[in-house]
Simulated assay, not measured.
Amino acid sequence: MKKKILITLGLLFSVFLLAGTAYGFYLYKSVTDTVSEIHEPIERVTEKREEEVDVDNREPLSFLITGVDSRGDHHSGRSDTIIVMTVNPEEQSVKMLSIPRDTRTDIIGRGTVDKINHAYAFGGVQMAMDTVEHFLDIPIDHYVSINMEGFKGLVDALGGVQVNNSFAFSINGHTFPEGELFLSGEEALAYSRMRKEDPRGDFGRNDRQREIVEAVIQEGAQISSITRVGSILNEVGKSVRTDLDLDGMWKIQDKYRDARHNVEQLEIKGNGTRMNGIYYLEIPDEERNRVRLELRSHLNLH
């Protein structure tokens, strides 16, 4: 009898071991397939760094996160969400700066002065990175481009995200009361797009966009999300593009992950103006220099 019990337990253990191995292989293949799908390298050398960031030694680095307002699986159009994220693992901190889409600046590589969100439409992510680098005088090391229409699928795959709404408003059939809210993907997209009812206009909209991005980062890092890994990877493959390969992602996740616990939201202010009937946001030199110095300090650039 004891022998039969031991044999039965041994068989069950073998089944569980094989199932775990198979699931592990499935996860590995799913991750590698997704990374291959979203990996879009660019040939670009920044003039803002003398040497490439040493990830192994945990040197601070920066990302440009662009939300492209396009339909379907396409990643073309204007980048209506522009977020610069700097990560300093030694300080265990992240700074996130939203650049208003109407900001008037030099479009690098085109030789014109225009709204900053036009850079992506004119020259893709490379022109967007070059333009933001010039505008802030900091290096942009990596990019993450998100199709905002597909972004709602990612939020749903994560099981929703939590935000803290500063005032009540309604938009596109959705009502958002003041206080802590748990949002579905469709609700998160509507929440991040609202600006007409916000007395701060684009600045308030930028705050909500950063809040949603941060919430996705925090939720995606939770162990509970592993149970939804298949659907998460599927949505990432449809809505995200980045220059990082699998090795780069593993290294950054390993060396920089603790920094996500301390996220500071930054804001850059300007004055609205009209030129030839077109609205622009003019950023004063002293304001741009203030933000520049804060970001350079966070990147240990002096």
Rank of each mutant, 00 (worst) to 15 (best):
L12Q: 10
L18M: 10
Y26P: 06
K29H: 11
S30R: 09
S30H: 12
T32Y: 15
E37M: 08
I38P: 00
H39T: 10
I42P: 00
E43F: 03
R44L: 11
K48T: 15
E52F: 03
E59C: 13
P60H: 08
L64I: 05
G67S: 02
H74I: 13
G77V: 09
I82H: 02
M85R: 01
N88H: 06
V94A: 03
S98M: 01
P100G: 02
H118S: 04
A119S: 15
Y120G: 08
V125L: 03
M129T: 04
M129P: 01
F135N: 02
F135E: 01
L136A: 07
D137E: 12
P139L: 07
P139N: 07
H142D: 00
L158Y: 04
G159S: 12
G160Y: 06
Q162D: 12
N164Y: 15
N165T: 12
N172L: 09
G173R: 05
H174N: 08
P177V: 15
G179M: 15
E180Y: 04
L181C: 09
M194A: 13
K196P: 05
E197G: 15
P199G: 12
G201C: 03
G204R: 00
R210F: 13
I212K: 06
V213S: 07
E219N: 07
E219W: 02
I226Y: 08
I226L: 07
V229M: 14
S231T: 06
S231L: 05
G237R: 12
K238L: 13
T242L: 05
L244I: 01
M249G: 08
Y256K: 01
R260Y: 03
H261V: 13
N262M: 03
V263T: 03
Q265M: 13
G272D: 06
T273Q: 09
T273G: 10
Y280S: 01
L281M: 10
I283P: 03
D285V: 11
N289G: 13
R290H: 04
R290Q: 11
E294W: 04
L295P: 11
L299P: 06
